[in-house]
Simulated assay, not measured.
Amino acid sequence: MADRGVSTALNYVLALAVVALLVSGLFVGMSGFAEERRDGAVRTELSVVGNRLATELGTAERLALTGDARTVRVGVALPARVSGTDYAVAISRTAPEQYVLVLRAPAADVSATVRLRSRVRVRPTTVGGGDLRVVYDGATDRLEVTDG
């Protein structure tokens, strides 16, 4: 009879070990999937935010080109965080009348790039996420993005 008691206990322990192994394998496999989904969500949100900023830069450019504009101010309401992480926007010139907006979320190690054409010069800068302001100064004949 002692053999039967050991056999039942051994079967129970082995069953628990197999279940624990399967569950841990599931968690390990799904963690990579969840991280990929999060990175994709962050990248998509950064792209949307970048396009919104590019649209507002285009609005400020059109207002500046009306001829009578000495100063133009356009407020840009952007989220302070995307998918729960901070981000920054870097604007740089790539060619005459061509600029690139690079939005980076360092915590997620994700970035998105948005291209912009502007006949009015845009000052290269880096700003944090959140409410921004696009300002055109007729004296310098350029657009500048600043914290809101």
Results as ranks from 00 to 15, higher is better:
residue 54 A to Y: 10
residue 54 A to C: 08
residue 54 A to S: 07
residue 54 A to F: 11
residue 55 T to G: 14
residue 56 E to I: 04
residue 57 L to D: 01
residue 57 L to Q: 01
residue 57 L to A: 03
residue 58 G to K: 08
residue 59 T to E: 13
residue 61 E to G: 07
residue 61 E to D: 11
residue 61 E to A: 11
residue 61 E to V: 11
residue 62 R to N: 15
residue 62 R to I: 12
residue 62 R to D: 15
residue 62 R to Y: 14
residue 63 L to Y: 13
residue 63 L to G: 10
residue 64 A to I: 02
residue 64 A to P: 03
residue 64 A to Q: 06
residue 66 T to I: 12
residue 67 G to R: 05
residue 67 G to K: 06
residue 68 D to C: 13
residue 68 D to H: 12
residue 68 D to N: 15
residue 69 A to T: 08
residue 69 A to P: 03
residue 69 A to L: 04
residue 70 R to Y: 06
residue 70 R to L: 12
residue 70 R to W: 01
residue 71 T to V: 13
residue 71 T to W: 09
residue 72 V to Y: 01
residue 72 V to G: 03
residue 72 V to K: 03
residue 72 V to S: 04
residue 73 R to C: 01
residue 73 R to D: 11
residue 73 R to T: 13
residue 74 V to Q: 03
residue 75 G to W: 00
residue 76 V to I: 00
residue 76 V to H: 00
residue 76 V to W: 00
residue 76 V to S: 05
residue 77 A to M: 07
residue 79 P to C: 02
residue 79 P to T: 03
residue 79 P to S: 03
residue 79 P to I: 05
residue 80 A to M: 06
residue 81 R to C: 04
residue 81 R to N: 09
residue 81 R to S: 10
residue 81 R to M: 10
residue 81 R to D: 04
residue 82 V to L: 05
residue 82 V to M: 05
residue 82 V to Y: 10
residue 83 S to M: 06
residue 83 S to L: 05
residue 83 S to T: 07
residue 83 S to P: 00
residue 83 S to Y: 00
residue 84 G to I: 03
residue 84 G to K: 06
residue 85 T to P: 04
residue 85 T to L: 10
residue 85 T to M: 09
residue 85 T to Q: 14
residue 85 T to C: 06
residue 86 D to L: 15
residue 86 D to C: 09
residue 86 D to S: 14
residue 86 D to Y: 12
residue 88 A to P: 01
residue 88 A to D: 05
residue 88 A to N: 10
residue 89 V to I: 15
residue 90 A to C: 08
residue 90 A to E: 09
residue 91 I to F: 00
residue 91 I to N: 01
residue 91 I to P: 01
residue 92 S to W: 10
residue 93 R to L: 11
residue 94 T to H: 00
residue 94 T to Y: 09
residue 95 A to N: 11
residue 95 A to T: 04
residue 96 P to S: 12
residue 96 P to A: 14
residue 96 P to C: 00
residue 96 P to W: 04
residue 97 E to P: 00
residue 98 Q to M: 09
residue 99 Y to W: 08
residue 99 Y to K: 04
residue 100 V to P: 01
residue 101 L to P: 03
residue 102 V to K: 07
residue 103 L to W: 07
residue 103 L to K: 09
residue 103 L to P: 02
residue 104 R to L: 05
residue 104 R to C: 08
residue 105 A to P: 13
residue 106 P to Q: 06
residue 108 A to Y: 09
residue 108 A to E: 11
residue 109 D to E: 15
residue 110 V to S: 02
residue 110 V to C: 06
residue 111 S to L: 12
residue 111 S to W: 06
residue 112 A to I: 06
residue 113 T to D: 09
residue 113 T to W: 12
residue 114 V to H: 04
residue 114 V to A: 05
residue 115 R to K: 12
